[in-house]
Design a protein around this nucleic acid. Structure first.
Lengths: 343, 343
DNA sequence: AGCCATGATGTAAACCTTTACATGATCTAT
DNA sequence: ATAGATCATGTAAAGGTTTACATCATGGCT
C-alpha cells in the first residue's frame, strides 16, 4: 500500500482532515498552526511516512538545501578530511552535501553546471582550483561559491585554505636551521596556485638564509608520487646534488623517498626530505616524513561557514581566509651529510 | 541580461515563435518536429543559453537522470577506481553521478533516502554493504539499486564484485605452495560479508592442504592499518607464531608489515605477508606486497550496466555477478623461515 | 472534387510544493 | 452589544517541465 508511490502532502492532508496549506505550515512554520491541528498532522505524517518532495519544494522555492562539492580527484588523501569538516558544518545548518567528480576533465564540469543551473544545489564548493566552465558568461549564473584546498585560478570567488607561503617557509627554515644550503624544490608548477605559493615560501626562506638564486635547484612536478620519482631521476643526471629535498607535497616526497631508497641511499643519513600536507601515509613511511600539516577539518568547516554566510545574503568579507600551517617534525630530516657536498 | 535568471522554455518559445510544447519536442523527440522549426528552436536555444531545468523535468517525469552512489568512506583507496568505471558507463548512457558519503553513520544514510524519495536520483549504487535504513518498510520505496564492492547484508539487491572466496583461495594456495602451513588469517569479521568470504577461501585452502582447523590462527579486524598492527600485537603475546600472514585486505597487510618492521623483523625473510585488493600503495611498500587484484574499473562498469538494465525495466537476471580476481606476485612472500617454527 | 490518412503544432493538465490573500471565527475593548 | 484586532485555516496561483489530446493543414487516393 505505502509501497506503491511515496505519500504526498495531499495524502497527509486528507488523513489529518486539513488543507495541504496547513500541512505545509505545520511542517515549516509550526508556530502558525494550532496545537491540536499540529498534532493531527504529525500523526498523519507518521501514518503515511510522508517526507517532503525536495524536488517540488526546491522548484517552488527556487533554491535547494543541497551543496555541491566538486573535486578533481576523490582519491586525494587530503580530500576526505576536508570533506568531514564541510559535512559537519553543512549538516548543522540543515544542508546536505553532494559530491561531483571531474577527474580533471573540464567537460564533466559542465555537467555540474547544468545541475547548478536548475537549482539542484544552492551553493558550490570547488576543489578544482579552476572554474570548470569555458565561458566566462556562465560564471554570472554561478550560485554562491567558495574555493577550497586550491585557490581558484580563473575567477574571483573567495578561498579558504592553508597559508602555503608560511607553511613552505617553515619547512625551508627547518632545513636551513639543520645546516642545509643546497635545498632542491621538487614540484614547481605554474598552473597550480598552491604550488607556486609554496615555491614563493621556499624562495623567501633561501633569500633570508642568504642562498643566492643561482644556487637553488627547482624541478617541476604535478604532485603525484610518480612526479617525485621522475624529478629525482632528472636530478641524478646532473653533476651537483642537493643535501635536502623540499617537496611540494607529501605524495611528491614519497616518490622522492622511494627513488632514493631504490638507489640505496639512506634517509635522512644521506639526504633530508620534507613534504607538505601531512597525509595519513606520512606517519607510516620509513623514515616517517617531516612535513607541514594542513588543518583539514578546520579548512572544511571554515569554508562551509563562509559559504553559508554567502547563502544568507552577506557579501564575502574578504577574498581569502588562510589558516595556519603547522610544522610536524618526524624522522626524515637531519643535518646535511658531508658525503655529497664535497663534489 | 542573461545573468538575471536562467532562461526558461518559455523564453525559447517566444524567441522561436512556437509553443513551449514544440520546444520540448524539438529537444527530446526531434523527429516529431519539422526541420525548419527545429532550426528555429535551436537558434533560440543558442541565443538564450537555455538548459532544461532538470528539477522541473524530474518532477514532471517522476524520475531523474542522476544516479546516487553512497559510500561509507570516500578515502578508501578502492573507491576511486571503481567510481571511474561507474562514471564512464553512466555517462555513456546519459546519466550523471552524485556521491553521498555516510561516514559509516546510518543517520546520514537516511538523508540520502529522502533524496531518493523525492526522485532526485533514479537509481542507487551502494558501497556500504548495508542498506542504510532502519525500517524495512522503507526498502519498498527504494529505486533500482545495485550493491558493489561489499555484498549487501540486509537486503536482496543484486551485487557486483570480485569473487572473494576464489581470491582468498589463490592467496592461500600460493602460501601453501611455498611451503607454509602455519598461516594466520588477519581481519576476520562477522559483519562484513566480503571479509567472511575471504575467510571461507582461507579455510577451503587449508582444508585442501590438510591443515586441521585446530592449527589455524584467526584474528579479527576491521580492515584498517591500525587493525593490522593491533592484531599483530595480540599475536605476539601468544607462544606460537605463524610463518605467514594472510591479510583480509591491503590496509591490514600494511599494518602488519609496519608492525613487523617496528619489531625488527625482515619480510619476507622472517615472515611472508599477503594482502587483498591491490591498492596503489601495495606497489610502493618495501617489500612490495603480494596481493589479489580487484578488477575495479570492470566492477564499476559492470555494476552500472546492471543498474541501467534495471532502470530500463528488466528484472535482475541474477543476484550476484562475481568477477575474477588475479594473483599479483610481488616480493612479500617466500618460503617459510625455520626460525620461528622450531619453538 | 471529396475523403482520409498523415504530419506538425498548439492547448492545457499534471507533477508536488509554498505562500499571498481571502475567509471566518474568536476575543478585546469600548 | 458592536467594531475591530487577532488568530487559524482554506483557496488558488506559481514554479518549469512533459505529453495526451485536439486542431489544423497538407497530400494522396478514388
Amino acid at each position: 500500500m505505502s509501497s506503491s508511490s511515496p505519500a504526498t502532502i495531499e495524502d497527509v492532508a486528507r488523513i489529518a482532515q486539513v488543507s495541504i496549506a496547513t500541512v505545509s505550515r505545520a511542517i515549516h512554520t509550526p508556530e502558525k498552526v494550532a496545537n491540536s491541528t499540529r498534532l493531527k498532522v504529525n500523526q498523519a505524517i507518521a501514518i503515511t511516512g510522508y517526507t517532503t518532495n525536495a524536488m517540488a519544494r526546491s522548484l517552488r522555492l527556487g533554491r535547494s538545501n543541497m551543496i555541491l562539492v566538486v573535486a578533481p580527484d576523490i582519491g586525494d588523501p587530503n580530500f576526505s578530511n576536508i570533506l568531514v569538516g564541510l559535512e559537519n558544518e553543512a549538516r548543522s545548518h540543515g544542508y546536505g552535501i553532494l559530491i561531483g567528480h571531474t577527474h580533471n576533465d573540464p567537460q564533466r564540469g559542465l555537467e555540474y553546471l547544468k545541475f547548478l543551473n536548475s537549482n539542484q544545489a544552492a551553493g558550490l564548493i570547488l576543489f578544482t582550483g579552476i572554474l570548470p566552465f569555458g565561458h566566462q558568461s556562465m560564471t554570472a549564473r554561478l550560485p554562491p561559491s567558495v574555493g577550497v584546498f586550491e585557490p581558484v585560478y580563473n575567477g574571483g570567488i573567495p578561498y579558504v585554505g592553508v597559508d602555503d607561503i608560511e607553511g613552505a617557509r617553515k619547512a625551508v627554515d627547518l632545513l636551513v636551521a639543520e645546516g642545509h644550503r643546497k635545498i632542491a624544490f621538487i614540484g614547481d608548477s605554474r598552473t597550480r596556485l598552491a604550488y607556486s605559493r609554496r615555491r614563493q615560501g621556499y624562495d623567501a626562506g633561501l633569500d633570508a638564509a642568504g642562498v643566492p638564486p643561482g644556487e637553488r635547484t627547482i624541478l617541476e612536478g604535478d604532485g603525484t608520487i610518480e612526479s617525485g620519482r621522475l624529478a629525482l631521476e632528472q636530478l641524478f643526471m646532473r653533476d651537483t646534488l642537493p643535501t635536502a629535498f623540499m617537496c611540494v607535497n607529501d605524495q611528491t616526497a614519497i616518490g622522492v623517498m622511494i627513488g632514493l631508497g631504490a638507489r640505496g641511499y639512506d634517509i635522512p643519513g644521506d639526504f633530508s626530505v620534507t613534504g607538505f600536507d601531512d597525509v595519513p601515509q606520512a606517519t607510516f613511511m620509513t623514515p616517517s616524513l617531516t612535513t607541514i600539516r594542513q588543518p583539514r577539518t578546520a579548512i572544511g568547516k571554515s569554508a562551509m561557514a563562509l559559504l553559508l554566510e554567502l547563502l544568507s545574503g552577506s557579501e564575502p568579507p574578504e577574498t581569502e581566509i588562510l589558516l595556519r600551517p603547522d610544522l610536524i617534525v618526524r624522522n626524515s630530516v637531519t643535518a646535511p651529510s658531508r658525503r655529497f657536498q664535497k663534489r
